[in-house]
C-alpha cells in the first residue's frame, strides 16, 4: 500500500486556535484532521502519520521545522507528502509551501497542497510544488479534499497528469514541449476562424507584460566619470577561449583590455548567430566601440574607461538568464566604481 505523510497546523490538527500558534512540531501516527477526509477518499493509500505545527512557530523557526519534517520523511518513507489545505491563511500557506518545496525539491518525493488563489504563498511556491485551487475558507474543505485526493490518487498510481487546469492546480509556470495531432498552421487557421466568428478560442501562450526599464538620469559630470563598455553582440577574444555559445548564452564574460586602445581585427571576433558577423569580424569596434571610448578618454570627454570588455550573446538568451546577467554585471561594475555604461546590442 502506498504511504502518505500529512502536514497540518494547530487549528486543523485540533490542538486549538491562535493561542496554540506557537506549538512546536510533533508527529502523530495515522490520519488527523483533514487527513481523515483524504483517508476516506483514497482507500488504496495509507496516511502513515500527521505532522502538526503551530503557524507562528513555523514562521519564526522555518529551518528547525523543515529539519523536523525531513526527519519524519526519512522515518516514514512516504510516496507522497500532502499539506493543508491552507485556503487563504497566510502563515499556514507559507508553512505548507515551505514543507512541500522541501519534500518535492530537496527530497525528491512528490508533494501537494491546496490554497485560495489570493494566498501570497501561491506565487511563492507554485513553481516548486503542486498547489490545488481551493475556496477562500474552510467552508470549502469538502471540495478541496476531493480535488486533492483526486490529484493524490493519480500521482500515487503513476498516471500521466493532464494540464494544470484539468487537474485543478495552479500552473507551476513551466513551459514544456508537447506534440500536437495537428500542425501549427492547422491550429492557427482554426483559431483565426473562431476569432473571426466571435467564438471562444484559447491562445497557446499567454502574453507577459514586462517591467519597463526606466532610463537613469544623465550623469552630471562625464569628465570625471568612469565608463564601462558592455555588449550583447557576442564579441570575444579570437578563438572564443571560453566557448561562449552562438545562441542561448548561459553566462557573460569579462575580458581585460588593459593597454589596448581598440579591439583589433584578428584579436577579437563575433560568435553571435543572430546577425551577419562579417563586418564585426572586420572591425570588432563596430559592435563594441572601445576605440571611440578610448579616444574620448584621451580628449578628456570621459574621465576614465573601465579597462574591460563585458560581453555575452543576446541571441535567443532567455529573459530569466538575461535578467540574471544584468544583476551580476551591475554588481561587478558597482564594486569597481563604474558610474556609466555603454551597452551595445545587435
Amino acid at each position: 500500500m502506498k504511504k502518505i505523510l500529512f502536514y497540518t497546523n494547530q487549528f486543523f490538527g485540533q490542538i486549538g486556535g491562535e493561542e496554540f500558534a506557537y506549538t512546536e512540531p510533533f508527529v502523530e501516527e495515522g490520519a488527523k484532521g483533514p487527513a481523515m477526509g483524504l483517508k476516506a477518499a483514497l482507500p488504496e493509500a495509507e496516511i502513515v502519520a500527521t505532522v502538526i505545527c503551530g503557524d507562528n512557530y513555523f514562521a519564526e523557526n522555518v529551518d528547525k521545522c523543515k529539519e523536523f519534517i525531513q526527519a519524519q520523511v526519512e522515518k516514514y518513507q512516504p510516496d507522497l507528502f500532502v499539506a493543508g489545505p491552507a485556503f487563504n491563511a497566510g502563515r499556514f500557506g507559507i508553512a505548507c509551501g515551505e514543507s512541500c518545496t522541501l519534500v518535492q525539491e530537496d527530497l525528491g518525493i512528490p508533494a501537494i497542497t491546496g490554497m485560495y488563489e489570493e494566498n501570497p504563498a501561491v506565487d511563492m511556491f507554485k513553481a516548486y510544488c503542486k498547489i490545488v485551487k481551493t475556496a477562500k475558507s474552510a467552508a470549502g474543505m469538502k471540495d478541496a479534499i476531493a480535488k486533492m485526493s483526486a490529484l493524490a490518487g493519480k500521482i500515487l498510481r503513476g498516471e500521466k497528469l493532464g494540464l494544470p487546469k484539468e487537474e485543478g492546480y495552479f500552473p507551476m509556470g513551466k513551459r514544456v514541449n508537447v506534440f500536437h495531432e495537428k500542425n501549427g498552421a492547422v491550429r492557427a487557421v482554426e483559431m483565426l476562424v473562431r476569432k473571426l466568428n466571435g467564438e471562444p478560442y484559447e491562445t497557446e501562450l499567454e502574453i507577459s507584460t514586462y517591467e519597463k526599464v526606466e532610463p537613469s538620469a544623465p550623469l552630471p559630470d562625464l569628465k570625471h566619470a568612469k565608463i564601462a563598455l558592455c555588449t550583447s553582440g557576442g564579441i570575444v577574444p579570437f578563438g572564443n577561449p571560453d566557448h561562449l555559445t552562438a545562441a542561448s548564452a548561459k553566462f557573460w564574460k569579462k575580458y581585460d583590455l588593459a593597454g589596448l586602445d581598440k579591439l583589433e581585427k584578428g584579436k577579437f571576433e563575433s560568435v553571435h548567430a543572430g546577425y551577419d558577423p562579417v563586418y564585426a569580424n572586420e572591425n570588432p569596434n563596430r559592435v563594441a566601440p572601445y576605440n571611440v571610448l578610448k579616444e574620448l578618454e584621451k580628449e578628456g570627454e570621459i574621465g576614465e574607461v573601465y579597462p574591460y570588455l563585458i560581453t555575452t550573446t543576446g541571441n535567443s538568451t532567455s529573459v530569466a538568464d538575461a535578467t540574471r546577467f544584468g544583476k551580476e554585471i551591475a554588481e561587478d561594475l558597482k564594486a569597481a566604481g563604474v558610474q556609466g555604461v555603454i551597452l551595445t546590442s545587435t
Binding site: A127, G173, K174, R175, V176, G184, R187, A188, M191, L192, K195, Y201, T203, E204, L205, I207, S208, T209, Y210, S248, S318, V319, A320, D321
Partner: peptide, 21 residues
C-alpha cells in the same frame, strides 16, 4: 530557457491574444 521557467518572448503587446506556439 532550458528549464522552461523563463518568460517566453523578448517582446509583447497586449493585443497579441491569439498565439500559436
Amino acid at each position: 530557457g532550458i528549464d522552461g521557467m523563463s518568460e517566453s518572448l523578448p517582446d509583447s503587446v497586449p493585443e497579441a491574444n491569439a498565439i500559436v506556439t
